[in-house]
Design a protein around this nucleic acid. Structure first.
Lengths: 193, 193
DNA sequence: AAAACTTCTTGACATTTGTCAAGGGAAAAG
DNA sequence: CTTTTCCCTTGACAAATGTCAAGAAGTTTT
């Protein structure tokens, strides 16, 4: 829970009052996940958004051919959840599961809306988070539209070098939107140059 | 200006007070653009976010080879601007220009932040807008990672059929991240099937 | 320790998409 | 009205990426 407090204060650049922190603490529910355990399965409504205290998760869809397409990874101090389903209460097209043992803090949309309206620091954090999120997603979109597989891998290596160590290559390939074989060849090629 | 009022009330599902509307009116500056006129050029800081009353604009980057990559179109009742540059005050990598004669309402970040803290309806609108925006961008990302050129065109046709009429094909191709020739062939193919 | 999975690599080949070049027709500019 | 520019299409070919199949380590499970 201390991790979350530090995280929020990081956004607001001023310490949280004890009263606010108490409100925040009450809103979140701790949850542990084992490796491969689902936080969300396709077809369910995403009832919780999760803050990651420990471990790693992925969000992905499965197409008609059974191929997984990873749209998001989350590690320590990241958030994960299907925004669309969370907000609109529609069934999700995504699965979210743990790649490693994970410890999470869960919050429902109702509780989050409550916090937003009672704790200004949270409102600000959510706004900034949304903005960063949007910028990051737009950058990825831009990359995936304008760059080759090789350039996208190079960008990933630069922006999230820790991912390369932490996740299996075929998942990075899925995240980049290329086949595992192509990624393997791109890496092989980049070693020589 | 009435269009903006209707637009905001659409989000908040309750009428704006005259006082609030007066505040909002003051914050925005009207601006007209001719066809091909820039609202933003690469290297500049994006000082204004624009609400489109009339006309159409595009946001795009230009790569080393001089190829344009369109990341966003905006028509009536849409917003356009480079969020990253607008928020962080960094030089933008994008250009924004008018595809048709356009009438806009401009707002600076300082003015927008002011409105957000004084007019709750605006705060809510911005929050919802950010969410929708994020969801839409994530969908596009998902499509561009997981689908073929053909499937992405089909999706565009379904989600924004008006774009197909309004924008030249080579710009739609750029928006989809494929070459104009490939789009031409995809369309030809889909006629027969 | 053995068995069963998972992960990564590599080769051969197929498919998709891009590039270059040319031409025709529509729209805008003069 | 004529000229110029823009836009779309098509063909031939090249490049990038995907698919399938096999095998070698490495991990996890039993």
């Amino acid at each position: 829970m201390q991790a979350l407090r530090t995280y929020i204060e990081h956004y607001t650049s001023s310490p949280l009052s004890e009263a606010d922190f108490a409100l925040i603490s009450q809103a979140f529910t701790p949850k542990k996940l084992r490796r491969k355990q689902y936080l969300l399965q396709e077809g369910e409504v995403c009832k919780y958004f999760a803050f990651v205290l420990k471990g790693a998760l992925r969000q992905y869809s499965v197409d008609d051919k059974g191929v997984e397409h990873i749209v998001h990874f989350a590690v320590e101090n990241w958030w994960i959840g299907d925004r669309e389903s969370f907000i609109m209460l529609t069934p999700s097209r995504y699965n979210i599961d743990a790649l490693e043992e994970a410890e999470l803090l869960l919050i429902t949309n109702a509780q989050l809306q409550g916090l937003i309206s009672t704790v200004p620091a949270i409102a600000q954090m959510v706004r900034e988070l949304d903005q960063r999120n949007f910028i990051a997603t737009q950058k990825r979109l831009h990359a995936s539209i304008g760059y080759t597989a090789e350039e996208r891998y190079a960008e990933l290596k630069q922006v999230h070098p820790e991912f390369l160590q932490r996740f299996p290559q075929h998942m990075l390939a899925s995240y980049l939107g290329i086949s595992p074989e192509t990624l393997s060849r791109v890496r092989h090629k980049s070693l020589r140059q």
